[in-house]
């Protein structure tokens, strides 16, 4: 029963997210509303961690399986991907390198600047 009860709580937040998605005229996925609501409930103490923990971790553990059908659907949309394969590959590599570099560098710069990390070897600031 433990898992079932926890699933019920998660589904309540999921459903609340779907209602918000229906009511609010923004392109925010229902799951995001649910995520934020559940997070807020945990922070505010309405929901205690042990009330959802096991089922949440189970769902997260099996989550990769849920992406498989969408990935296989590439068979159907291969025609859409083929003509843009090179641009897509270029965008993927360039942006991954830049995003990792910039966000790491900014975090490090601000931490060094705040003096929290005196020993940091970073010399340049962003």
């Amino acid at each position: 029963m433990k898992y079932l009860k926890q699933l019920l709580i998660i589904l309540i937040f999921t459903f609340a997210g779907e209602i918000l998605h229906y009511v609010v005229p923004l392109q925010i996925p229902a799951s995001i509303y649910g995520l934020v609501l559940l997070f807020a409930a945990l922070v505010l103490g309405f929901i205690k961690l042990p009330q959802v923990e096991e089922t949440a971790k189970l769902l997260i553990e099996v989550m990769p399986l849920m992406f498989i059908p969408a990935g296989v659907a590439l068979l159907e949309s291969w025609g859409d991907l083929k003509p843009i394969l090179i641009p897509v590959a270029a965008i993927m590599v360039v942006s991954t390198v830049l995003v990792m570099g910039v966000s790491g560098k900014v975090t490090q710069g601000i931490m060094t600047h705040a003096g929290k990390k005196q020993k940091g070897e970073a010399k340049d600031h962003e």
């Binding site: 998660i10 589904l11 999921t14 997210g17 996925p29 799951s31 559940l38 959802v52 089922t55 849920m66």
Partner: peptide
């Protein structure tokens, strides 16, 4: 969808 909510 519920699994994403569980990321909270």
């Amino acid at each position: 969808t519920p699994a994403t909510v569980a990321l909270a």
